[in-house]
Design a protein around this nucleic acid. Structure first.
Lengths: 100, 100
DNA sequence: CGTGTAAGGAATTCTGACACG
DNA sequence: CGTGTAAGGAATTCTGACACG
């Protein structure tokens, strides 16, 4: 089920190289709940390849002028609802345990 | 051919968590040419999931008391010779361009 | 041979905020 | 709303070396 694609092992700097998005943008999309990285003990964000793919999609939408709120709605509406929900739950759970 | 499994995106600290090997050990196995991480501009090592798997195998061998030199020979002799050679070439090439 | 450690420096990441709009 | 940036701190990673054996 959960393979390499979903393992959260990539740091934000590498995600920046992989997507071309600025650190600010990557963090902001998390704030808008479009993406849900994990956190190491220290608090460093870790992303999966799946996250990188989502970010690439977000980048496309943003270029089209779509707002983050709309993108989020689209994601919830579209295809693999399960995946999205799973990602979101993981994010929530993490946030909860770290008592953000 | 080359999928997520081979993309070098994991930092040494994360590899340490994934394998349980110390940073010292991970770096040493590179010195012994058992593993070939890439380097970022700055010089930081980046590993792939495939590298992590190899490290796990190395760890097993070491526990059995096998020396790194023997492990290296075994790797060259065993199964996917292509993969090994490919990995080594990548390592060499990287080393060359960075003029280690 | 294989691995630990202290050493000093350089780059990374984090958060909260001000800015513009 | 979305993104840039300067700010200060904390943790990461790097290399070369001494240590033990």
């Amino acid at each position: 089920m959960s393979s390499y694609k979903d393992k959260k092992v990539i740091s934000i700097g590498t995600v920046n190289e992989l997507t071309g998005l600025s650190l600010r943008q990557i963090r902001y999309y998390e704030e808008r709940e479009l993406i849900f990285p994990e956190r190491t003990k220290r608090g460093t964000r870790k992303y999966s390849f799946a996250d990188v793919e989502v970010l690439l999609q977000i980048a496309d939408k943003r270029e089209e002028g779509v707002q983050t709120y709309e993108i989020r709605k689209d994601m919830l509406r579209s295809g693999d609802k399960e995946k999205v929900i799973e990602r979101m739950l993981r994010g929530q759970i993490n946030a909860h345990f770290k008592m953000k």
